[in-house]
Nucleic acid binder design. Structure first.
Lengths: 116, 116
DNA sequence: AGTCGCTATGTGTGAATCGCATCTACTCGG
DNA sequence: CCGAGTAGATGCGATTCACACATAGCGACT
């Protein structure tokens, strides 16, 4: 496993990653989610994460509430709504479709050989 | 995330797709390249394709020349430069890395099940 | 001849997004 | 006290996007 090249996933995946992160963590908050998506190769900054979360809330895909932290300021903790859960499932399908589309494109481009 | 789109590859892949299309076709032009990338699931419009090609030319990755067409107006035909050929190889690696990153993320999200 | 539709290459523009800086504020260790 | 890490949020210039528009050659049909 080559760890030298930091693959940057397109930032347009950010809302999908946030929904899926919330699905697997059940509840989380911006700062943690930012590190989570960064750990998976999507280098979004905090501002983008906060704004994306508010957008998701405006669309009723997540709900938020304040929670105190024992090591820092209060956190705005997000959870998926019912529609959010459905949206997360759709996100997973969407990401898988894109991955498959990429594979198909790479085959068509005749660059199926393994990557160094 | 969005449930209304059939499957659209991120537009940020456009320059990569153009380079790789030119690599496999050896020579082509905007109108044809636009249909080519659309056929592969990247729905970019003509304006984006034309502007992206000029950007690639400014970066010395492609070269262009006018050629008459027997069924319509003249075409600006593009070919890869040497650096463009190297860039295309890098694009292939990049796309493969993104695909693998996507797969890794889907595994981490525990959505490894096959897509319907 | 007119004009519709396809081919073909561009530009113009308002809106959305991005990236980076900045602000506030709490906690803990030195 | 001060700096670093944690946590949320806004401001704003620059870039990008989607869409419309402009121009023009060509073939077919009326």
């Amino acid at each position: 496993m080559a760890a030298d090249t930091p693959t940057e996933l397109p930032r347009r995946f950010l809302p999908d990653f946030l929904l899926l992160s919330l699905k697997s963590r059940d509840r989380s908050y911006g700062y943690e989610l930012c590190q989570a998506v960064q750990a998976m190769g999507l280098s979004a900054d905090l501002a983008a994460v906060y704004r994306s979360l508010r957008t998701l809330q405006r669309r009723d895909l997540v709900d938020s509430s304040w929670q105190p932290s024992d090591s820092g300021p209060d956190r705005r903790v997000y959870v998926l709504t019912d529609t959010g859960r459905r949206a997360a499932a759709e996100s997973a399908r969407e990401l898988a479709r894109i991955r498959d589309g990429l594979t198909a494109a790479l085959v068509e481009f005749d660059v199926t050989s393994p990557v160094p």
